[in-house]
Amino acid sequence: MACISPDGKPTESGSKMLRALKGGLGSPEKIAKEAGLPLFRVRSGLRELAEAGLAKQKDDRYELSEEGAKLIK
């Protein structure tokens, strides 16, 4: 897992993506720009965050889940 450590906490890149999602529903392109990460890393990272229940996918865009929001407070 590139965005979630084995202990279940987000890695540095995972945290960057979660913080970028703070502004609400965003496309991978927007998140990549805000997080300063390559688009391919963000696409795979957002999938991981969603699988871990930290983000939610709505069509082609993502937003923070309640769990994800708690982590970046």
């Binding site: 897992m1 590139a2 965005c3 688009l39 391919f40 890393r41 696409r43 795979s44 990272g45 999938r47 991981e48």
Partner: peptide, 13 residues
């Protein structure tokens, strides 16, 4: 080494 990647993750590049 950067996690699980799909070919489609590179779409557009």
């Amino acid at each position: 080494t950067h996690g699980k990647l799909k070919l489609e993750d590179f779409k557009g590049s």
